[in-house]
Every structure is written in C-alpha cells, then in structure tokens.
Design a protein around this nucleic acid. Structure first.
Length: 212
DNA sequence: CCAAATGATTGAAA
DNA sequence: TTTCAATCATTTGG
C-alpha cells in the first residue's frame, strides 16, 4: 500500500513533532512520523469533509485558549491535507480513480484523527500559561440580527434543525457551535423552552416529513 | 468602580 | 445524543 503514495510517505519528518502535546503515552511509539497504520488498511471513511469541518471549528474554539499550539496544529494540518489533495489531483486519471480517492480520504481521515488526539491532549494538559487570558467573543450586531430575527420568527418552536443551524452559521458568519450556544442561552434566558419529550416528538415529525 | 449582559462550560436528565 | 439550568468569566454601560 505504501508504494501507492510514495510522495506522501516522503514528506519531511521534522514537522510531525508539532502533532504531539502533553504527556508521552504508549502511542508515541510512532514518534517520528505518521502512525504506521496510515498505510496499513483502507478504513471505511464516513465523511471526511464533515470531520474536517468539525476539526476546523475545534481550532476556532480552542484558539483563544492556546494560540500558539493551535496555530502550529492548524498549519501542520493544512500542510498535510494540501499534500494529500495534490496527490489526489495527480492521480485522477485511470480506472483506479475511485480506489485512489478512497485511499486519499482514508489518509486524510487518519490525519484528522491524529490532530484531534493532539487537541485532546492539549485540552487535558495542565492549565495554559497564565499569560493567556480567556476572552469572550462579542458577537457582531449583524450576527445577532440574524439570530434574533430567526428566533422572533420561530417563537413557538425556537429549535433550528441541523441544516438550519448550518444556514444560520453561514449567514451570521459564526460557527455552528456558537449558533447552538446562542439559541440554548436565548431559550433558557427567555424562559421559552419545551419539555424534552415534546422536542423529540417534533423532531420525529420533521424526520418523517423529510422523507416525503 | 460595579452590576447587568452575555458567550461559554458543565453536569444531569431523558 | 440533545437540551436545560446553573454557573463561570469577560465585557460593557452607567
């Protein structure tokens, strides 16, 4: 399998160090490069794009807490994913195309897992250095306008669906976590919440409607 | 300054 | 899992 991706396996070794933070663990047998498993199998990739998006949002939310490590991690990630996409581009011809695509997705997937692992270590690490003070973003007037408007129009059931959250995030240029938090706080503070069973009922109905 | 507002976090419930 | 309520911590208006 490794032979299929000669260029990826010959990526410079030095930078891999930044993928590791926090205590050493048994997993660090792979210290000088990608985990060996990177080349060993083709796992079922659910949806790399979704995973990548979640990862980028993790970067956003952790950046205020750990500016430098996040910078390094996101730069590394961009570098590796760009390398993989280059490889993908170079191999788009031929009947092995699907096979290759799957493998590139699989590599990307594993890199994302690796970076997520680093983020986990980073978060569980002892307090960030005291010089780093947490900040609370102040949402812009425009962002708030979008959210308020949606809320006002759905006072009877202020629970945006996943796709509505996506849309709201786009339009308000926030990330989906921020949108969800805002609605959680908004409902709670304006005492406009529903019982969990009622919420579940509505969701079931929405799922059924979607199917037709 | 201080108190209110508000985004983020947490832990429990279902 | 998602949501809520309580709580924390930062920002802001007075």
């Amino acid at each position: 399998m490794a032979a299929v991706f000669p260029n990826v396996s010959s990526l410079p070794a030095g930078n891999y160090e930044v993928l590791r933070f926090g205590p050493q663990s048994s997993e660090d047998a792979t210290r000088t490069g990608f985990p060996i498993s990177l080349f060993s199998s083709v796992s079922n990739v659910t949806d790399v794009k979704v995973k990548e998006k979640a990862l980028l949002e993790s970067f956003d939310s952790l950046r205020p807490l750990y500016p430098e490590p996040i910078m390094q991690l996101s730069c590394s990630y961009k570098y590796y994913s760009a390398s993989i996409e280059m490889e993908r581009l170079n191999s788009i011809q031929g009947e092995l195309k699907d096979f290759h695509n799957q493998n590139f997705d699989s590599q990307l997937n594993k890199i994302i897992d690796r970076v997520e692992y680093s983020l986990k270590l980073l978060s569980s690490r002892d307090r960030p250095s005291p010089s780093i003070t947490r900040t609370r973003p102040v949402l812009t007037r425009n962002s708030l306008k979008v959210l308020e408007e949606w809320y006002e129009c759905h006072l009877d059931h202020p629970y945006p669906t996943a796709s509505q959250v996506e849309w709201l995030a786009q339009v308000s240029s926030l990330n989906t976590e921020q949108v969800k938090k805002w609605f959680g706080n908004k409902r709670s503070r304006s005492k406009n919440t529903r019982s969990l069973t009622e919420i579940a009922k509505v969701k079931r109905r929405q799922r059924l409607l979607k199917r037709h």
